[in-house]
Amino acid sequence: MVRKNKKKLVQNHKRSLVTMFNPKSPVSEQFRTIRTNIQFSSIDQEVRTLMVTSPGPAEGKSTIAVNMAVVFAQQGRRVLLVDADMRKPIMHYTFNQLNTYGLTSVLTREMTLVKAVKETNEKDLFVLTSGPVPPNPAELLSSMAMERFFREAEEQFDMIVFDTPPLMAVTDAQILANKCDGTILVVSSGKTDKDQLVKAKDLLDSVQSKLLGVVLNNKKLKNTNYYYYYGAK
């Protein structure tokens, strides 16, 4: 039973990091298409800080965020993937790392950004896990410390990708959406409610977020085991 569980964890790990473990797959090609669409979405201003969120939980936003970070790194850009979901962090599981320190450690000045960032097996891709779960995530994200974090991160990296909590759950994603150059909204095929999607967009509009597009996740194709990820823009 233990061996089966470990094998399942490895399979899930490889599936969530499809662009790293299977870069020639049709799914990976879709992520590269989304990357191209993001790069052409703004001619006047380069998108260097990208937020990935969803209307509700379990819609695949973290998987999308991880793979977007990977394909940007595969382009030769120095990329930082930030787990900004301080309530239910997951990036340390994805990359098999400890979460004893991370974003919260940097924001509370317990550790510098340079020391808190961790390397990954993908060249040019670095990850900043959430760190210890704080009692006040929203306050931390809206603090001056977060403003300093943005400035430091942009000095050290070409691209910063944020994985955030769902929009309908807490205000964290709205706070970051106002600070980032662009936002990707992830919806799950056959699961995401249309009313929730509309409300999520309204929440982003209310904070003047630049919505770059919507990604349709978990769309099963006929006669294949692959799940495609589509960019709406």
Rank of each mutant, 00 (worst) to 15 (best):
I184C: 12
C180N: 09
D195K: 04
N67P: 06
K118R: 12
T49P: 02
T120G: 01
F162Y: 10
T49R: 00
V79Q: 00
A116R: 00
Q75S: 12
K179Y: 10
S209T: 04
R48D: 10
E139A: 13
D44M: 05
L103W: 00
D83V: 00
T53I: 11
Y227A: 12
A84E: 12
S25T: 12
V47K: 07
Q156A: 01
S189Y: 15
M1R: 14
I90Q: 06
V161T: 05
L221E: 12
I34Y: 09
S142H: 12
K201S: 02
A65V: 07
V18K: 02
E154I: 11
I43N: 12
K191C: 09
R35W: 14
Q39V: 11
T112G: 01
P134L: 13
T224W: 08
G131I: 10
V186P: 03
R87C: 05
L185Q: 03
P165W: 03
L125K: 00
M168D: 05
M146T: 03
T120N: 00
V2A: 10
A153V: 10
K6V: 03
M86S: 07
E110C: 15
M68V: 00
M86R: 09
F21G: 13
Q75R: 09
L176M: 11
N136Q: 05
V215L: 08
S28C: 08
V186T: 04
M86L: 13
